Deep mutational scan, measured.
Amino acid sequence: ETEYTFDDKREADRAAKEAQNNGLRVHVTKDGNRWKVRID
């Protein structure tokens, strides 16, 4: 399990989409004014 934090939602969405394309499970959550992408 890996977690990334992004300031920009577009960057978070791009990272999530890339991980999904690689067959990974992805969870995107909002943390204040930042975005967390957790990859299982």
Rank of each mutant, 00 (worst) to 15 (best):
Arg38Asp: 05
Lys9Asp: 04
Ala19Gln: 04
Val28Thr: 03
Phe6Pro: 02
Ile39Lys: 00
Ala19Asp: 01
Val37Ile: 06
Asp40Lys: 10
Phe6Val: 03
Asp31Leu: 06
Asp13Leu: 15
Tyr4Gly: 04
Ala12Gln: 00
Arg10Thr: 13
Glu11Ile: 05
Phe6Asp: 02
Arg38Trp: 08
Gln20Trp: 11
Asn21Glu: 14
Ala15Gly: 01
Asp40Arg: 10
Arg10Asp: 15
Lys36Pro: 03
Glu18Arg: 12
Asn22Pro: 02
Asn33Pro: 15
Asp40Ala: 12
Asp31Lys: 04
Arg38Cys: 10
Lys36Asp: 02
Glu3Met: 06
Glu3Ala: 05
Lys17Leu: 12
Gly23Val: 01
Asn22Ser: 11
Arg34Phe: 07
Glu18Asp: 10
Phe6Ala: 02
Asp31Tyr: 03
Trp35Met: 04
Ala15Ile: 13
Val26Glu: 01
Ala15Cys: 15
Val26Leu: 01
His27Gly: 04
Val26Ser: 07
Lys36Met: 08
Tyr4Trp: 13
Leu24Met: 11
Gly23Tyr: 01
Glu11Thr: 08
Val37Glu: 03
Lys17Gln: 13
Ala12Leu: 02
Lys30His: 09
His27Pro: 00
Asp7Glu: 11
His27Lys: 11
Phe6Glu: 02
Arg14Asn: 09
Thr29Gly: 05
Trp35Ser: 04
Asp13Asn: 08
Thr2Gly: 12
Ala15Tyr: 15
Asn21Gln: 13
Glu18Cys: 14
Arg14Cys: 11
Ala15Val: 15
Thr5Pro: 03
Leu24Gln: 08
Arg38Met: 13
Thr2Pro: 07
Asp13Phe: 12
Val26Cys: 03
Asp7Trp: 05
Gly32His: 01
Ala19Trp: 11
Ala12Asn: 00
Thr29Arg: 09
Thr5Leu: 14
Asp13Gln: 11
Asp8His: 08
Glu1Gln: 12
Val28Met: 07
Arg38Leu: 13
Val28Arg: 02
Arg25Leu: 09
Lys17Asn: 10
Glu1Ser: 13
Ala19Pro: 02
Lys36Phe: 07
Glu3Lys: 02
Ile39Met: 05
Thr2Asn: 12
Lys30Phe: 09
Asp40Thr: 14
Trp35Asn: 03
Lys36Val: 15
Lys17Gly: 07
Asp40Gln: 13
Thr2Cys: 15
Val37Arg: 00
Lys9Gln: 10
Asn33Arg: 03
